[in-house]
């Protein structure tokens, strides 16, 4: 249909509209303008700093935290091993006390694994945010062509590997024991 005919047809439709429909149409038009403006703003966003500096810096800092805790844990384990080597030279009661204390320190040093896994989850979340920011800004950038993202093939073990749960969602050892026993 030629443009002139379309405009005439639109006028005819508009004149036939009631007040409610006309208001709705105006609101839709305003909404359309807002969406267009938002797209332009997103396309103009300067995310290079986020991509190139802030997020990598944040992940580097977190990697350093993991490294520092690992170093500290290993230092503690070194000391524990030295104490264990002293046990044969101690009186039996003292040797037993040292043994119990060292065991408790070993148990406590597992914090490094748990915190490391939790930090790993945060790093992954930051990487997801980085990816989404890139995709969103790329989608509205003129001439941007986004590569299709293929879903990675994951094993059951990978799908279920979510790391430590928050306390409210985690099962205790007793609950896990009961669950396993229910299969017997």
């Amino acid at each position: 249909m030629p443009k002139v005919d379309r405009a005439e047809r639109a006028l005819q439709v508009m004149s036939g509209l009631g007040k409610t429909e006309a208001t709705l149409l105006q609101e839709l038009e305003a909404l359309g303008r807002m969406v267009a403006a938002a797209k332009e703003e997103i396309a103009a966003m300067r995310v290079e700093n986020v991509d190139a500096t802030h997020l990598p810096a944040a992940t580097d800092e977190l990697d350093e935290v993991v490294k520092s805790t690992a170093d500290a844990a290993n230092e503690i384990l070194d000391v524990c091993e030295t104490l264990e080597n002293l046990q044969p030279k101690l009186a039996p009661d003292d040797a037993e006390t040292v043994g119990v204390c060292v065991t408790r320190i070993y148990e406590a040093c597992a914090f490094q694994d748990i915190t490391g896994q939790r930090i790993g989850k945060v790093v992954n979340a930051l990487k997801q945010i980085e990816q989404r920011v890139r995709e969103t800004t790329g989608r509205y950038a003129p001439s941007a062509v986004l590569p299709a993202r293929a879903a990675p093939l994951r094993t059951e073990g990978e799908r279920l590997a979510n790391g430590p749960q928050l306390a409210a969602a985690a099962s205790s050892q007793a609950e896990i024991d009961a669950l396993l026993a229910s299969f017997d």
């Binding site: 694994d113 748990i114 896994q117 059951e156 279920l160 590997a161 979510n162 790391g163 430590p164 749960q165 969602a169 985690a170 099962s171 205790s172 896990i176 669950l179 396993l180 299969f183």
Partner: peptide, 19 residues
């Protein structure tokens, strides 16, 4: 550290001896 029920069930189904 995987303590969800679905993890324990999957491990059990795969033949884990204990968890």
């Amino acid at each position: 550290a995987e303590s969800k029920t679905e993890n324990v069930v999957a491990a059990r189904a795969a033949g884990v001896s204990n968890y």
